[in-house]
């Protein structure tokens, strides 16, 4: 632990102002530039409320020295999220036909209905004519994978981590690919004979893909 760093922390040198970001960088001794990240991710432009990086970096050396370095395998065990760019999608594949079997075998059918429309729990299936997005104007509309979800990667991610609800995280990756295929098929987003793999999940263009905008509420007198 660097004592100088501890003192600077205590003195509050780690200020919050972006203008002082260079101070944090200087702290780290790494000469990190303040400024916007050149993030390659396309969606950042439309959804990032902070408009890029803060430019502030952590310390070059541990400040307190508490904690234990995490190993690659420890990280891999928990690093389960799938990015909208497909990062994290596992190898493997499944077919829509297998997915329809999984839908019954893993009892999705009991809670979401034979075609994902019948409930009793969240409605999975349903498109809106013309793929319109009139949710704000019609209180009776229900969101579904087909009319509201912007990314199929999210469908893989959520299904794998959280479903089936009462036995979450018990499906193989192949089963998840297959049942994701079934849900996309229910929504007329894949044909019945489709084979689903990581490329298919990334490439499936969801009808609501471009519907999401960043928060424009800023405080002040305007009601948004």
């Amino acid at each position: 632990m660097s004592r100088a760093n501890v003192v600077s922390r205590l003195l509050g040198v780690a200020a919050l102002l972006p203008a002082l970001a260079a101070c944090g960088a200087g702290d780290s001794g790494g000469g990190v530039e303040a400024g916007n990240a050149s993030s390659g991710a396309v969606m950042v432009e439309t959804t990032d409320p902070v408009d890029g990086a803060t430019g502030r970096a952590g310390a070059a050396q541990p400040v307190y020295g508490f904690g234990t370095p995490a190993t690659e395998s420890q990280i891999a065990a928990w690093d389960i999220d799938i990015g909208p760019d497909g990062a994290g999608l596992p190898p493997g594949q499944g077919t829509v036909a297998e997915g329809l079997e999984v839908w019954e075998r893993h009892r999705c059918i009991l809670c979401h209905g034979p075609t994902g429309r019948e409930g009793p729990n969240d409605i999975i299936t349903g498109r809106i004519p013309g793929d319109e997005f009139p949710f704000a104007n019609d209180r009776s509309l229900r969101s579904t994978v087909g009319n509201y979800w912007p990314y199929a990667t999210t469908l893989f991610d959520y299904t794998r981590r959280a479903m089936p609800f009462d036995l979450p995280g018990t499906m193989t990756d192949e089963e998840v690919y297959a049942v994701v295929g079934a849900m996309l098929y229910f929504n007329d987003l894949l044909p019945a004979d489709a084979v689903v793999d990581s490329a298919m999940v990334v490439d499936t263009r969801m009808p609501a893909r471009d519907r999401f905008v960043p928060d424009n509420r800023t405080g002040g007198p305007t009601i948004r």
Binding site: S39, V44, D48, A53, W78, P84, W149, P150, Y151, Y158
Partner: peptide, 16 residues
Amino acid sequence: RIELSDRPGMFRDETS
């Protein structure tokens, strides 16, 4: 788990 990234994860609870 906290993962620092250059994009949001687009999790179900920030989309659906």
